[in-house]
Design a binder for these strands. Structure first.
Lengths: 187, 187
DNA sequence: GTAATCAGTGAATACAAATTCAACGAATTA
DNA sequence: TAATTCGTTGAATTTGTATTCACTGATTAC
């Protein structure tokens, strides 16, 4: 069925286009017509694929939520190593896999006040904070991380990562920082 | 002139109310009617004080830009000490001087893509990045900070601070982190 | 004391952007 | 080939909100 495939392709094209625009221009500043023009397609057709702009956002966030599992550390790897490795991959995605990179940025943005409720709730549920806090506790026991409320430390850690990634998407010239720097705030 | 004073009071009330709402609900999600209702006053009257919602935002950002001078370190103080002290004050303002705290958060938010242009440009101009980069270079020379592009380090530093402060305003329960942690990413 | 000015109101208006829809042509099916 | 379905369009409509405005009552100036 070539036709169904075409439709699926287009659906993906819309999602990817919207993802890029949402992250670079912001959700409220990207108009439906912007997305349609960028795909490109008519504005009317977009509503055959998604019920509304909010639903399009929710769909993106659902995709992001699925992929979020990879943010969980496997057993056995030292916490510090794993965090550094994770950040290294994440930052390098900015160039290699913009899709993944943008998705991370979007998920973080949607968690903020003022974003559409449905999408926000979905994004909230897959926050990595609790997993990271557990990881930090391990690191504290083994002495590589300093003392302090693990959940607060995890919150600060991800807030930092989010902020840095947003800078990177706002200014594509900006080189990726050394993951070591960010992990250092736990040591 | 009691009347002029009253007007000035009200003007300030509008600004403070808008500041709080913009930071807690987000600029686009706070409606003019929300601000008016919170002051409280009629929506129409708000336009006797500010030409538009964007102008109100610009005015806030102009105020923030004025106060931004205090983010510059005086000579003689060790970079590390000054940064820690600055963060300590900033975080404690969350409880003591919410106005100052919120203003910092707003300035950071307005610098992002998708925010009204005028306000954005004003906020961009008073970025502390260059000053902080200079400070970091000093710290690198004296050996307290690690090697690396100072501007990039400054960018990461402020992105982290911004992210953490936004978390703090989104969740007032969250305790302030130890400034030491954030400065550690430079060491 | 009267006129002129100003703060204030909230319903009416304007506007921008999301969403709908009637019509068209191309692909699919019988 | 004819009939039907489906993807597609872009102009018309709806909707949500910023902004205006005609009017009111209080304050100030003369």
């Amino acid at each position: 069925m070539t036709r169904k495939e075409q439709k699926e392709e287009r659906r993906k094209a819309i999602l990817m286009t919207a993802l890029t625009l949402f992250v670079t221009k912001g959700y409220y500043d990207t108009k439906i017509t912007d997305i349609a023009a960028a795909v490109p397609m008519s504005t009317g057709l977009l509503f055959h694929y998604f019920e509304s702009k909010e639903e399009l956002l929710s769909e993106l966030v659902r995709m992001g939520a699925e992929g979020a599992g990879s943010a969980t550390a496997p057993e056995g790897v030292p916490p510090e190593m794993w965090l550094k490795g994770f950040l290294g991959r994440l930052f390098s995605y900015a160039a290699e896999q913009p899709w993944v990179f943008n998705m991370f940025v979007l998920m973080g943005q949607v968690r903020r006040p003022g974003m559409p409720e449905e999408a926000r709730e979905i994004a909230m549920k897959v926050s990595a904070i609790d997993d990271t806090a557990a990881l930090i506790k391990k690191g504290q026991k083994s002495g590589v991380f300093h003392k302090g409320d693990a959940k607060l430390m995890a919150t600060c850690f991800w807030a930092s990562v989010q902020g840095i990634m947003e800078e990177m998407s706002a200014d594509p010239e900006m080189p990726a920082p050394d993951p070591e720097w960010i992990v250092a705030m736990l040591k």
